[in-house]
Design a protein around this nucleic acid. Structure first.
Lengths: 226, 226
DNA sequence: GTCTATAGATTGATAGAC
DNA sequence: GTCTATCAATCTATAGAC
């Protein structure tokens, strides 16, 4: 009877169609990333997901609650990856009785972030979305995002303060803001530029490794500037 | 009866009320910056400006054309400032038969940009708006902005290539993107953060000089990293 | 140039049949 | 859980009186 129970809610045996909730989340993620939250209607989402208009409010309650689920679905696991790596950096520095290094600290945050883009289908749209979340003028998107990012940001900030004892906490804070700005700009634009804006000879869409190779030394040098 | 005529349309001698067009531009700038383009209705704009709803379409033709004027009104003079300073850097380097320095090149672009915020009332809203323009997901805002920024961006890029002969043009291009990301993040967030997000002891709204003192060395070191 | 009034389209959300 | 039908609110834009 386990089979019947599964169909209760309800996926047919041979049916490979993901369930409605997933389809809505996928469609919303894509459209919020590409068109913006306020510029995406529920009708556009349910059309893309090929589900009924009323399904959004049935499954999520409101457009805003849907946005929260779209963000949480991927950001919670991503934050776990970043937290694990940051804690490992701190642990290693304590064990070896030295300060954390700036480069390993920044990498612990940035590498999982940028590699996440390649990890699952749809994650690239998600990265555009969170790359833009901080710059949303309207509270709706920004507040939901900040709720989910706050604690990992402080962990990163504290580790950097530990790594850079000769630089004031205020300067470290703002340099970290500069770095977040650079990272989020890249997250939301790579692969989405209009080609016409590129000087000749510049690859408009470097892969993740190439981007890390350019980004990390840039950020490390900036953070360490005297 | 002169009173009646004044209300007719027409600005009287002693009337200090800016004309309708200005009032609409000011209101639109403020609301586009704080609420976003799609999240700002014409009713909100005409309400803030205390003019009639129909005035926007009479004076500007459409909401989109209004946005273009809001951006052009301040960006054209700002671009002139930046262009003049960049050309002066290039001229000085040619005269002294040396390469432009990275710091003076970046300053030529960044100082006018950040000081513009303090230059006139309303300019702070404008800086938030253009700080966010590049990250708009929707074409409307971004395309209008890119139209106005393209040529000055290339001038900056070429001068940097000239200043950094040992770094590949591709790397310079992306490092410039990182720098633009850092700058625009700061432009749109300074003074607009929620206070609760600040670690103790960090000034949530440094003035322009303090910010330049922190930002310029960060960007210079990043651009010059080997 | 300014105003009222409204057209015409679209929105988020919901009620109720199945 | 899914669907149709629709409400009530909102939007941009415009026509036409003054």
């Amino acid at each position: 009877m386990s089979q019947a129970e599964m169909d209760q809610s309800e996926i047919k045996k041979g049916d490979t169609r993901p369930d409605t909730k997933q389809r809505i989340l996928d469609a919303a993620e894509k459209l919020f990333a590409r068109e913006g939250f306020h510029n995406t209607s529920l009708r556009a989402i349910t059309g893309e997901a090929e589900v009924n208009l009323a399904a959004v409010n049935y499954h999520f309650g409101s457009k805003e609650a849907l946005l929260d689920k779209v963000i949480a679905r991927r950001l919670l696991p991503l934050n776990e990856l970043r937290r694990t790596r940051l804690l490992r950096v701190r642990e290693a520095s304590r064990r070896e009785n030295r300060r954390p290094r700036v480069e390993e600290t920044l990498r612990a945050f940035i590498e999982p972030t940028m590699r996440f883009r390649d990890s699952e289908p749809g994650a690239d749209d998600f990265m555009s979305l969170i790359g833009r979340a901080l710059s949303e003028p309207d509270d709706t998107v920004r507040k939901i995002f900040i709720t989910h990012i706050k604690s990992i940001f402080y962990l990163l900030y504290e580790t950097l303060c530990n790594a850079l004892p000769d630089i004031s906490k205020e300067v470290i804070f703002w340099r970290l803001q500069f770095s977040i700005g650079a990272l989020s700009h890249i997250l939301r634009t790579v692969g989405r530029f209009e080609l016409s804006h590129f000087p000749e000879g510049v690859n408009p869409a470097p892969d993740t490794d190439a981007m890390l190779t350019m980004l990390v030394p840039y950020l490390v040098q900036g953070m360490e500037a005297h």
